[in-house]
Amino acid sequence: MKLRSDDSIAVVLPSPIGDSLIGLVLVDNLIRNGYRPVVFGWVAEQLADWFPHVTVGRRDAWRGAFDTVIELRPTDYASTLSRSGKTICLATLPEYGGSKHMVDRIVDIAKNVLGLSDVTRENGLVVPAGVMRGRFANRVVIHPTGSHPEKMWGRKKFLALSRVLTRRRLRPSFLVAPAEFGVWGDIAEEGCEVNALPKLNEVAAWIAESSWFIGNDSGLGHLASCIGVPTLSLFMRQGLARSWRPGWGPGAVVLPPSFLPFGGLRERLWQRLLSVRRVTSAFQTLHGKHARAVHDHATADLPDAKSMQTTRLGMLPGAQSRRF
């Protein structure tokens, strides 16, 4: 299934943020090997400034334009981009399955299926010049939601974790989607900061200018990892974490204790079994491992670090924020 050097190539990304960021690993490898794919998907559109080497297309303008169309999973429009009406769906390939990390599966496909010679695990993300990485040395982004409710830790536990972080002189900052702000905005009355940003590039900037990220198994954990922000991810089970944990920057996974004998029972009870103390301990280990490097980097770039820590990132139009 090696690609011809003169092929016109489209890559159609899936809708979930994490899946798209993993799919961009394939895009980056195509570019490294001399191809010029056109990429489709809302994540690539909203993060265009973060992937400056990627050409982003709008589907209506590219009907029937490509010799080869690659999609990670079946979509409702990828075939319309193909001259032949056919696509290469990575999810149907043997290399897409198995127990390896998803990034490594994409690397295997790039190397062994598409025949690319210069292959990397990176996806090409570049932090834009206007974003100051790690600007807020004590800010911990907490992402308490996700697209799958069964993967979400409890609200009360996230609030308890926030109080622990505050006592340790860190600054927890809850980050939710605009549609979730009505449900989560009231935590400001408990002394919490909660923000909702309308565009993914604004979310990326907020995460990049923070120093730590804690969240459920969700796409924003992958985004934080891409950017290089130390990331603690809460997972319901080990197998899921093995394949889907954020796989780029420094990070760790925290799981519930595994004393229950049945996997299905552990999945149903994982939110109860995963304690605030266990998550706090995992974060403390991650913090201790990387705080020195983060501090040295921040000090080198920000001579007046004390005054910078008291400055809030300006909220963009459409953003919502509450702090008691």
Rank of each mutant, 00 (worst) to 15 (best):
D49E: 15
H290W: 09
L223Q: 09
S233W: 05
A65T: 00
L114A: 01
N201V: 15
S99R: 15
D104W: 02
S258D: 13
T55E: 15
V119Y: 13
G221Y: 04
S82C: 00
M1N: 10
A179K: 14
D6S: 10
V113W: 06
V27G: 01
K100A: 11
P256H: 05
L81M: 06
W270L: 02
Q238E: 11
T231E: 02
S117Q: 15
R266G: 00
G263L: 05
A319K: 14
V194Q: 07
H287M: 01
T75W: 03
P16D: 09
L232M: 01
A110I: 11
I9K: 08
V27Q: 02
E193R: 14
S210T: 05
L265M: 06
N112L: 00
L161A: 06
G288T: 05
D108F: 08
V54L: 02
K111Q: 15
L175W: 09
L232F: 04
N29K: 08
L269A: 09
R168D: 14
S79N: 03
A177P: 10
A300D: 07
F174D: 01
I187M: 07
R312H: 10
G185F: 10
V127L: 01
V103I: 14
L234T: 00
L30Y: 13
L93D: 05
A252L: 03
I207Q: 12
N123W: 00
S258A: 15
L114H: 01
W270H: 01
C226E: 03
L273R: 07
T120R: 15
